[in-house]
Structure formats: C-alpha cells, structure tokens
C-alpha cells in the first residue's frame, strides 16, 4: 500500500522526458539490429565470393557497409528526438 501510494503521488511512470528517452533508445536499438542482420547476410556472401576471387575484396567491402546507413539514420533520429 505504501509503495502504491508513492507511485500515485509521483505521477505517471513515464513522463514526457522519459518517453523521449525511450523513443531515442528504440530508434538506435532497432536500426542497430537491422543493420547488423543485413551486414551479416551481405558479409557472409562477400566472404564467399572473396574466397573464390580475391579481387572482389573492394566490392565486397563496399556492399557490406551499405546497411550501415540504416543505423546512421537511427542515430540521427535519436539525436533529433533528444534535441527537440
């Protein structure tokens, strides 16, 4: 009863600042996971191609880092949320 009263008195669990922080955290987490998954697929394919033909190293590297843009967008979004 005492704990319940304390919660009631201090207002909702998440106030506006908390929601913002959670939004920013979600933006970076989900995009981070998404680019990790995409890079894993492309990275293994690139390694496969490179194992047969070393000349594909450059192309493989570029293709592997392209999904990195996803997490960069996530980072930008989370910074914008925080600064708003």
């Amino acid at each position: 009863m005492v704990a319940g009263e304390a919660v009631m008195m201090s207002g909702p669990i998440l106030d506006a600042a908390g929601m913002k922080a959670l939004g920013a955290a979600l933006a970076i987490t989900v995009t981070g996971l998404a680019s990790a998954w995409a890079e894993k697929e492309i990275g293994t394919a690139a390694i496969g191609a490179m194992a047969e033909n070393e000349g594909l190293f450059g192309k493989g590297l570029i293709l592997t880092v392209i999904p990195e843009t996803i997490v960069i967008f996530g980072l930008v979004a989370s910074l914008l949320i925080n600064s708003a």
Binding site: E41, I42, T44, G48, A51, E52
Partner: peptide, 16 residues
Amino acid sequence: SNYAYAVTRVRAMKSK
C-alpha cells in the same frame, strides 16, 4: 544452411 555464403561462393565458382 547459410545460403548467402554458399550460393555466392558457388556462383563465383561457376564463373570460372
């Protein structure tokens, strides 16, 4: 299965 790896490698082999 890891198809991404196997298939790309096999395709590179086919090109040879």
